[in-house]
């Protein structure tokens, strides 16, 4: 049988299969009686696929892709807008910060000036007080000194009179006063 030889060579030889197939009535591909059937159903299948694609799938997928492209473009634009907004916000923030800083500097300067003014006033007042007190004290010191000199003269006169009397003399008030006054002065 042809089959016996085929068993050996068939693995490699496609021609062999064709020959064997030919024994059984040729390749099914060349069986023309199946052609009308195949062509009829093929055209039906292609028609069905075409109808599905043309009327449903292609418009739908084109729509999906367009939507997606639109969404992506829109999102990118929105992102750009947000970026600009963020930049504006950053500028506004920086400006506010600088303003606040300037304001703070101003307030500090004003406060410092006010404090300085108060301080100056207080210092001046204190100085005036001190000066007044010093003057007062000087007056008092002068009085005390004057009082002391007077007392010294009286004590000296009395002492001199007592000494003169004790020595057995007779105190001449006029002479004693003159002598004491001379001594105290000198």
């Amino acid at each position: 049988m042809a089959n016996e030889t085929h068993a050996v060579e068939a693995a490699a030889a496609v021609a062999g299969h064709a020959a064997e197939a030919a024994e059984k009535g040729g390749m099914p591909q060349l069986d023309f009686s199946t052609f009308p059937n195949q062509i009829f159903w093929l055209l039906l299948a292609l028609g069905a696929i075409y109808w599905l694609l043309k009327n449903i799938a292609i418009p739908r997928i084109a729509g999906i892709l367009a939507d997606r492209a639109g969404t992506i473009t829109g999102d990118l634009e929105a992102a750009e807008q947000y970026k600009l907004k963020a930049k504006d916000a950053e500028a506004a923030y920086a400006k506010a910060l600088a303003d606040a800083r300037a304001q703070a500097q101003k307030i500090i300067a004003e406060a410092r000036a006010a404090i300085q003014k108060d301080l100056d006033a207080a210092t001046a007042k204190a100085d005036a007080d001190i000066a007044a007190r010093v003057a007062q004290s000087e007056v008092k010191i002068a009085e005390i000194r004057a009082g002391a000199l007077e007392a010294v003269q009286i004590v000296a006169t009395e002492t001199a009179t007592a000494i003169v009397t004790a020595l057995g003399g007779k105190a001449d008030m006029g002479a004693v006063n003159a002598a004491v006054g001379q001594r105290v002065k000198g």
């Binding site: 016996e4 299969h17 064997e20 197939a21 059984k24 099914p28 199946t34 059937n37 195949q38």
Partner: peptide
């Protein structure tokens, strides 16, 4: 092989 091997390489193409 002759006893059992059968080749029908064109079988799947039959309509």
């Amino acid at each position: 092989a002759g006893t059992g091997l059968v080749f029908h390489p064109m079988e799947p193409f039959k309509i």
